[in-house]
Every structure is written in structure tokens, then in C-alpha cells.
């Protein structure tokens, strides 16, 4: 088989493996007993989605999908930053409410 076919098979195999791993991360996000577990699993899912989008960009030969991947990276980082601030505030407020 020629080279274009080989590249195509390689990309499709990568996407299938990454999708399976995405599903397992979702199980950890549902199961995780702590709040931090869920944020970590969501962050990892975001990284895997970035990998899938980059592979798709090369497979379909459309270069604007890489802009989408970069936006995804920025938004997932921003989500972690804001969520940790909010959860720390919620925890401290619960402690203060309990003491009063």
C-alpha cells in the first residue's frame, strides 16, 4: 500500500485509541470521590481532545482547525484557574459558617 494510505491508517488508529481513553477519563470524572478528581479528569479530557483535533487537522488538510485546538488549550487552562479560586472560597465560607 502506498504512503498516503499508511498515513491515513495511522491517523485513524490514533483517533480510535484516544477516543477510548477519553471514555475512561469520563468514568473517573463521574466516579471520583473528591472535587479535585473531577477537575483533573476534565483537564485530561481536554488535552486528549486537543490531540484529536490536531490529528484531524492533518487528516483533512484544513489548517484552521489548529486555531480551534489552541483556543481549547487556553480555555481549559482558564477553567482550572477560576475553578480552584471558586472552590477554595466555597470551602472557606463553609468553615466560617460552621464556626459562627
Amino acid at each position: 500500500m502506498n504512503l498516503a494510505n499508511a498515513y491515513h491508517v495511522l491517523y485513524i488508529a490514533a483517533i480510535i485509541v484516544l477516543t477510548l481513553l477519553l471514555f475512561f477519563c469520563l468514568i473517573r470524572a463521574i466516579k471520583g470521590p473528591e472535587v479535585t478528581d473531577r477537575i483533573v479528569a476534565t483537564n485530561m479530557m481536554g488535552t486528549m481532545i486537543i490531540m484529536i483535533i490536531c490529528v484531524l487537522a492533518l487528516m483533512l488538510d484544513e489548517s484552521y482547525l489548529l486555531d480551534v485546538a489552541l483556543i481549547y488549550a487556553m480555555i481549559s487552562f482558564l477553567a482550572v484557574v477560576v475553578l480552584t479560586k471558586v472552590y477554595t472560597g466555597v470551602y472557606k465560607e463553609k468553615k466560617q459558617g460552621g464556626k459562627k
Partner: peptide, 21 residues
């Protein structure tokens, strides 16, 4: 290329939020 006012504005808003955080 795909983009424009709405998505660009959202990303700039995200930059401001990151600075604030």
C-alpha cells in the same frame, strides 16, 4: 479564515479574565 468578531472577542475576554484571576 474561520473566526471573526464573536470568537475573537471571546478569546480577548478570556485573556482579561486570566489577568484578573
Amino acid at each position: 479564515s474561520p473566526g471573526g468578531g464573536f470568537s475573537g472577542g471571546a478569546v480577548m475576554g478570556a485573556g482579561l479574565i486570566l489577568y484578573n484571576a
